[in-house]
Design a protein around this nucleic acid. Structure first.
Lengths: 153, 153
DNA sequence: TGTTGACCTCAAGTTTAGTTGAGGCCCTAC
DNA sequence: GTAGGGCCTCAACTAAACTTGAGGTCAACA
């Protein structure tokens, strides 16, 4: 038979208490409850009505933390996670698909930063005193939009 | 003599009205007033008590917009701008120094993302089903901290 | 026995980054 | 001469992402 969250005979590490998840992921306990409210993560309850998390939830929390760090809003995460099941460990395929979506987002973000770095390198060279030549100030500059390269450089 | 903001004889493009700055930078008028309140930008007033911005302020606003886009909080921007004067166009040196500070911040951010991309590539390869090998889940992982590389990979 | 400690719920507060609205000034154009 | 546009201030509101606090349960430990 399978171990259940309320099953005291279950191996202690099969299901994690909220404090453990917090300790292992670095996310605050209150944040974890909040993510659950948003539907970003899920838990079962044990006999004492306490949350028990399956191990695969750690991965989700880790991704949420990282996304936060690089400024991706939680709403976007919901979409990114759309095809990854909450109630069971994702299959290889499901996880692959989600990972690829993630990579796309990360790449976009990295490219934005790389473009900006290139701009600034130009600025350092020229002192950026020439307002007309500064790509940062190009009106309607791609830096303020999505996915398109700067008009200059 | 130098043109002043209240000087109606000044060339029309020497000083910009808030609406113009908004149009050229993409920042909302209300956001510009807000940035001014925070001390991130500054303006003079013309004879009608309307804000007039020197051209070099466009560059600051552009940087603020970009920083926002990649998730850098405005407080950090204050520090980044600490050595760049508000009241006059920054000198070549001042701008160079600030630009270098910016580059450092951008690089950090880019590296974080690059590391995460590398992690995810690994995950796509392995399906990330092996919880013990997944660097994302390494407890106390550097991804949740500052400037230190991941323990794995 | 009692007192920690980890957990629970629900409501309210906080911070960041603004937006929206009311009420008003001044200039221009019909 | 009045309507509209662009600007002004100040106060209040919003949304995201949490945190904090009050009040309570349960189990283990001294």
């Amino acid at each position: 038979m399978t171990h259940q969250p309320g099953d005291s005979r279950a191996a202690p590490d099969d299901w994690l208490a909220i404090g453990e998840v917090s300790a292992r992921t670095g996310a605050a306990v209150s944040a974890l409850r909040f993510y659950e409210e948003l539907g970003l993560i899920a838990s079962e309850r044990d006999g004492r009505n306490q949350r028990r998390y399956p191990r695969h939830m750690l991965r989700r929390v880790a991704l949420i933390s990282v996304a936060k760090r690089i400024g991706i809003p939680l709403q976007d995460l919901r979409e990114a996670f759309a095809d990854v099941p909450l109630d069971r460990p994702p299959s290889h395929q499901e996880w692959q698909r989600a990972s690829r979506g993630w990579k796309r987002r990360l790449e976009e973000r990295r490219l934005t930063i790389e473009r900006l770095e290139a701009e600034l390198t130009g600025c350092i060279g020229c002192g950026c005193l020439s307002m007309k030549a500064c790509a940062l100030l190009n009106p309607g500059d791609a830096l303020a939009e999505d996915g398109v390269g700067p008009r200059r450089l």
